[in-house]
């Protein structure tokens, strides 16, 4: 079996255009998470984060892309999920991160919930241009 280079940036890109793409993204994410050494509940949390981020893309931007990749910081291995869209952007990020806030069709739990499931959370957004949400989880 080939040994993955520590610097390798194996990247999985999943276009998010329809609801079934969410299932595909989740399957790919699960597979990568298990490969990287995540266990039971953590794999499920990663799958749930992928679901919420993909759903945000569909609800707010109609379409976008999910990027899944391995990340390494010295001996630590982790998984990065990046949700990218060219949608309307988020005017008030602080508000969007509050439980219960939603301008779409969700419960308003998507972003704050995802933040709780992952170790690191970053959001860049520009009104009229789009949004990039980057989340990371490290193998314990």
């Amino acid at each position: 079996m080939p040994i993955l280079n520590a610097e390798s940036v194996d990247e999985i890109r999943v276009p998010i255009q329809r609801d079934i793409d969410i299932i595909l993204a989740r399957q790919k994410g699960r597979h990568l998470a298990a490969q990287l050494g995540f266990l039971g509940t953590e794999v499920t949390m990663i799958a749930a984060a992928i679901s919420e981020l993909s759903r945000n893309i569909l609800n707010y931007a109609k379409e976008g892309e999910l990027i899944l990749k391995k990340v390494q910081k010295s001996a630590q291995v982790g998984l990065v999920i990046q949700a990218i869209d060219q949608g309307p952007g988020i005017a008030d990020i602080e508000q969007a991160l509050k439980d219960g806030f939603s301008t779409g069709h969700g419960l308003g739990l998507g972003l704050p919930g995802t933040r709780r499931l992952m170790d690191e959370f970053e959001i860049q957004s520009e009104v009229g241009k789009g949004t990039i949400v980057t989340v990371k989880k490290w193998v314990k």
């Binding site: 794999v43 419960l107 704050p112």
Partner: peptide, 13 residues
């Protein structure tokens, strides 16, 4: 399932 329940709690569902 247990992992699903745990994740739902974290998500606030």
């Amino acid at each position: 399932q247990p992992e699903v329940a745990m994740t739902m709690v974290e998500l606030g569902l």
